[in-house]
Amino acid sequence: MASRSFYIHITIYAFVLLPLSMCAGIGGLKWVSVNLPHFRRPGEAAHLHCDYDLGNDTLYAVKWYKDNEEFYRFVAKERPQSTSYRVDGVDVDVSASDNKKVVLRPVRLRTGGLYRCEVSAEAPSFASAQSEGRLEVISLPIEDPKITGVRVQYQIGDEINLNCTSGRSYPASMLHWYINEEKISSNSVLIRYPTRKSRQGLLTTVLGLRFHLNNHHFLGGSMRVKCVSSVSRSDLDDRTSVIENLPITDLREALLLVRNSADLKQNQYIYTFLIIFVMFSMKFL
C-alpha cells in the first residue's frame, strides 16, 4: 500500500487598478472588477468575468490581456463584436465570450498568468478603467513518490543510500525525508538533484538520502524512513492583495521500515521491507 498525502496550498490573488483616465465626468464609468477561477487543471475550461459600472457612459470596448498581451477584444459598434488574437497558452472560445466574460478552453500549463480586463467608454468622456488577477494552472501528480536503492539486507555500519522520486506535477513537488518521524534537514545527508521537465511541461524532483546505520537509529528494534512529497503555490508579492486561500489536501508518502534482526536471531543483519502506503484525499475549502 502506498501513503500519499500531499499538502497543496494554492493562492489566488487579484488587484484593481485605479481608473487611468482623468477625463471621466461625474456619473460616468465608475469601476471595473475581474472574477477569475481559483485554479484550473489542464484540459478544463476557464471562465474569466469582467464586471463594471459605466454609470451614464456608453461602452466603447472591453479588452483582455494576458501578461500584457491582448488576446480578446469586444467592440460594441463593430460587427462582429468579438475578436480574438493569438497568444501563447490562450485558446478563446469566441462563441461563448462577450462583453462581460471570456471563456478559455482547453486550459494548458502555459495558460497560467496575469489577466487584465480594460473597459473604455465612448465620447465624450473616453473614460478607461481596468482590473487584473492571476489564474493558476495546477497539475497534481498521478504517481506516488517512489523510494529506490533499497538493498535486501543491511548491517550496522552499512551505508543507507536511497533516492525519493516525486510523481510528475506542476508546479514542482517538494520532497522531505524523515527518520523515525523526525524531519531530516542536514545537507550532509541529503543529495539534491536537478529538477527534470517532461515534454508536457510537468516537473519531477529527486532527493537523495545517504548516511551510515548506527544503533541510535533504531527505536524498539526498528527504524522507519519516510519520504513525503508536497506541492505548494504561493507567489505573492508586494503589489498584490490576497483575496482567497484555497488549500487542497493531497499528501503522499513512501515508507521504508528497517528492522534489526538481532533481536530475533543472534546476528547483526538488518532485513529491509519496503512498504508503500497509498492514501489520496482532496478537499476544496
Rank of each mutant, 00 (worst) to 15 (best):
P106S: 08
E181K: 08
R199C: 03
I147D: 10
T111I: 11
I160Y: 06
K183T: 11
Q153A: 15
V206L: 07
L175H: 12
I184Y: 00
E122D: 08
G201C: 09
G157Y: 05
R199A: 05
L140A: 07
V87N: 10
L162K: 12
T165M: 00
S166E: 06
D158E: 06
G167I: 04
V87M: 00
S128F: 01
G133S: 05
K100C: 01
V150Y: 06
R105M: 02
T205D: 13
S125K: 07
P124L: 15
V92L: 00
V87R: 07
A172K: 15
N187L: 10
T111N: 11
I142C: 05
L175R: 14
C117G: 03
R105A: 13
T111K: 11
K100P: 00
R199T: 14
L202I: 02
L135R: 07
S139M: 08
S131L: 04
T111P: 13
D144Q: 05
L203H: 05
T205A: 07
I138Y: 12
S139Y: 12
R196S: 09
P124G: 02
S188H: 14
P171Q: 12
E159H: 07
M174S: 15
R108W: 05
D88T: 13
I147A: 03
I191N: 09
I156E: 08
S139N: 09
W177Y: 02
I138P: 09
Q130A: 13
H176P: 03
G201A: 13
D158T: 09
Q153G: 09
N180I: 03
V90L: 07
C164F: 10
D158P: 02
V189N: 07
R192M: 12
I160M: 06
S198R: 04
V137R: 10
S131K: 01
S131F: 01
G149P: 00
P141E: 01
R168V: 10
R199G: 07
I142V: 08
Q153I: 09
C164A: 14
F126K: 01
R196K: 15
L114A: 04
I160A: 00
A123K: 14
M174N: 14
I142W: 02
P141G: 04
S120K: 13
S95D: 15
S131H: 02
H176M: 14
G149R: 01
V152W: 07
L202Y: 08
T165S: 12
C117K: 02
I179P: 04
P171C: 08
L104A: 05
S186P: 05
L202Q: 12
L162V: 10
L140Y: 15
P145Q: 07
L135P: 12
R108V: 09
A121V: 09
L140H: 08
W177A: 02
T205C: 01
S166M: 06
G89S: 10
Q200N: 14
R210V: 07
L190Y: 06
Y115V: 02
G89R: 04
Y178C: 11
I191Q: 14
D93W: 11
R196D: 08
G113K: 13
V87Y: 04
L104S: 10
